[in-house]
Amino acid sequence: MPEINKQRAPLVHLSNSIAGLSEAASRVGQYILGNPEKVVRQTVAELAGFTHSGQASVVRLCRQLGFNGFSDFKLALMAELAATNQQSLTGKDNDESHSNALMQRLRYLSS
Rank of each mutant, 00 (worst) to 15 (best):
A9L: 03
D93W: 09
N68Q: 15
A56G: 11
A56C: 06
G34V: 03
K6Q: 04
K38S: 12
R63G: 04
L81C: 02
A56N: 10
L81N: 00
Q30H: 07
H13L: 10
A9H: 14
E37N: 10
E37F: 08
P10V: 01
N100S: 14
V59M: 12
H52F: 06
S15I: 02
Q55E: 15
S110Q: 11
R27V: 02
S26N: 10
M103C: 12
V39Q: 04
A79H: 09
A83Y: 04
Q55M: 13
V28H: 00
Q64P: 03
E46D: 12
T51K: 06
G49E: 10
L33W: 00
T90M: 07
I32C: 04
S88K: 15
Y108P: 00
A83S: 11
V39F: 00
E37M: 05
M103S: 14
D95F: 15
S110L: 13
Q104V: 08
E80L: 02
G69H: 07
S71P: 06
A25E: 12
P2E: 05
E46G: 08
A76Q: 12
Q64V: 07
G34Q: 13
F50Q: 13
A76T: 06
A56L: 10
H13G: 12
M1Y: 03
G54E: 15
M1C: 07
R60M: 10
R60F: 07
A79W: 04
M103E: 15
F67I: 01
L77T: 04
Y108L: 12
N5A: 14
V28R: 01
D72L: 04
F73S: 03
A79R: 12
E23L: 04
G49A: 04
S71K: 13
V44M: 10
H52W: 11
A19F: 01
V12W: 11
F67M: 10
D72V: 08
S71D: 15
G34K: 11
